[in-house]
């Protein structure tokens, strides 16, 4: 694509859980500063791909590179964690239920030996639109949207360059989703972050991303610019079927059919 080193580069990556092949020969390049989307239905391997990059899934073959550096095995060095962070789908499960927000944000700083934690925590809370008043609350005292903001603050507090977003808004109400998506866009614009966004929602992906890959059965079916998808310049039947399905229900079609029914 470009001669610049891609932020993220995957070649022939395979992931297997107990013999089940969750990812099959996935190759992918994400340029620095790009917002890249991964779309697919459940079991398509889109979340597994993110977890493989993060070192949370067993990679059995292939190479992964972050900013040109090859990652080996499931171990990731400290430098990796400072550069790549992740936001999880379920805001109710991704925050430790017995730690205050303060402690959730303090932990990454403590692990990486950062001093002057207090101002950084306050700045991080401020950046995601939560005031200092939230600092000493527990997750159960927060709404889903507020929890997801905390999760984003936690991911950003180490100032990474790449953010992996695993269905960051699918557990949220539509109006809250809009707020969180706006926040993510704003943060990206301010910091020039690279995003890899996983979602089942074509609306969210085309809204957030420049390019996207459609996944099915552990493979990448098609890779295309978001504008092409919107304009209907689609190469495969599977992508077309997804596009039709996400347009909503039509009386008379029984779901098997295509747009021309």
């Amino acid at each position: 694509m470009t001669d610049a080193v891609p932020a993220l580069s995957l070649a022939g990556v395979n992931v297997a859980y107990d013999g089940y092949r969750a990812l099959a020969d996935v190759s992918l390049n994400v340029a620095a500063g790009e917002a890249f989307g991964l779309v697919g239905e459940s079991g398509s391997g889109k979340s597994t791909l993110l977890r493989a990059i993060a070192g949370l899934a067993p990679v059995t073959a292939g190479t992964l590179r972050v900013e040109g550096e090859t990652l080996t095995g499931q171990r990731r060095g400290r430098a990796f964690h400072a550069r790549v962070q992740m936001v999880f789908q379920d805001p109710y499960g991704s925050l430790h239920p017995r730690h205050t927000i303060d402690r959730q944000l303090l932990e990454p700083l403590a692990i990486h030996g950062v001093d002057a934690t207090s101002p950084r925590i306050l700045r991080a809370l401020d950046e995601v639109g939560l005031g200092a008043g939230f600092r000493f609350r527990y997750p159960h005292q927060l709404s889903g949207g507020q929890r997801q903001r905390v999760a984003i603050a936690r991911a950003l507090i180490l100032e990474p360059a790449i953010l992996l977003l695993d269905e960051p808004t699918s557990a949220l109400d539509a109006s809250v989703q809009a707020e969180v998506l706006n926040l993510l866009e704003q943060v990206r614009a301010e910091r020039g972050l690279t995003y890899v966004l996983v979602s089942h929602d074509l609306g969210v992906v085309t809204h957030m991303c420049d390019r996207l890959a459609v996944m099915h059965g552990g493979r990448i079916v098609e890779e295309l610019p978001a504008d092409d998808l919107v304009a209907g310049r689609i190469g495969t039947d599977y992508t077309r079927k997804l596009m039709v399905a996400s347009a909503g229900f039509r009386r008379g079609s029984d779901g098997h059919g295509h747009a021309d029914e």
Partner: peptide
């Protein structure tokens, strides 16, 4: 395998730290 344990692993926490500070309180 809770997300919050994965999240803390992604912060680069050592296994000992995870067990002592994140698993034990649970």
């Amino acid at each position: 395998h809770a997300d919050y344990i994965d999240a803390i692993r992604l912060m680069g926490a050592s296994p000992l730290r995870i067990v002592l500070r994140h698993v034990m309180p649970m």
